[in-house]
């Protein structure tokens, strides 16, 4: 019915996209990193440790975004049983886990000099840790449950329940007293980060998104190859 959804067509487009991203990724990464780590100004209060933010904030965004995507696709899978979704979800999950852990680790490294502690059980940090646990739960169902239908069902339920955690993470800094500072960049209204720091931040975010896309496409490709090896022509 949909010619573009034919496996060999998808494969062709994936190859092209990977090639394109590869050709621009390293140049952009160099530009973004040098802007973030060398040319952007230090903060008036934190000094150079503000540079951790350029990795920390995009990682946290990506961690949240990929879980939201997984959860919404899981709802679609649960209702419509579209088989392609499980491949997409399986390919996104490790990326999301990696960036969530990166946000936790960089946050901890930043917290030691600024807050004076590596770890605080405040609402933002704890809910982020719970997100990482949801990711681990999601990924491990596919590793431990051999019956594929059962694994897909359980993992999509985990993702859908985990969706409730996302607004809790987002609004934790507003609902409760936390050690973590409130959001600097708001959907509406002016951001409280100076433009000279905002630009490298968004550039780093864009580069990390490209990196995610690259890893996702490569993982998705291997999942398709795995299906082809089982001699299944269509999903």
């Amino acid at each position: 019915m949909f010619k573009i959804l034919n496996l060999s067509n998808i494969f062709f487009w994936i190859e092209k996209l990977i090639g394109f991203i590869n050709s621009i990724f390293f140049i952009l990464l160099l530009v973004a990193l040098s802007l973030a780590l060398i040319f952007s100004p230090p903060d008036y209060l934190q000094g150079d440790s503000v540079r951790i933010m350029y990795v920390h904030v995009p990682s946290a965004w990506i961690g949240l975004a990929s879980f939201s995507i997984i959860a919404i696709l899981s709802i679609a899978y649960f209702i419509f049983k579209i088989k392609n979704i499980k491949l997409i979800n399986k390919s996104i999950a490790p990326i999301g886990l990696m960036f969530t852990c990166l946000a936790l680790v960089t946050g901890s490294i930043w917290g030691q000099p600024t807050w004076g502690t590596w770890w605080a059980w405040d609402a933002r940090v704890t809910s982020m840790l719970i997100l990482a646990l949801f990711y681990i739960g999601f990924i491990s169902t596919h590793k431990f449950i051999t019956d594929e239908n059962k694994a897909n069902k359980i993992s999509s339920i985990i993702a859908i329940i985990g969706l409730i955690n996302i607004p809790i993470i987002k609004y934790s800094v507003e609902w409760w007293n936390t050690l973590h500072q409130p959001a600097s960049i708001k959907l509406t209204g002016e951001s409280s980060i100076h433009p000279s720091m905002l630009m490298p931040l968004f550039l780093m975010f864009f580069v990390l998104i490209l990196y995610c896309a690259l890893i996702f496409l490569m993982k998705y490709k291997t999942e398709i190859i795995r299906i082809k090896k089982k001699n299944l022509k269509r999903l």
């Binding site: 100004p41 230090p42 903060d43 008036y44 209060l45 934190q46 503000v50 933010m53 600024t114 807050w115 004076g116 502690t117 605080a120 050690l179 500072q181 409130p182 959001a183 600097s184 409280s192 980060i193 100076h194 000279s196 720091m197």
Partner: peptide, 12 residues
């Protein structure tokens, strides 16, 4: 003692 940072970032 833990220091709480606010949401403002700017060059010195």
């Amino acid at each position: 003692i833990l220091a709480k940072h606010d949401e403002n970032y700017m060059p010195p």
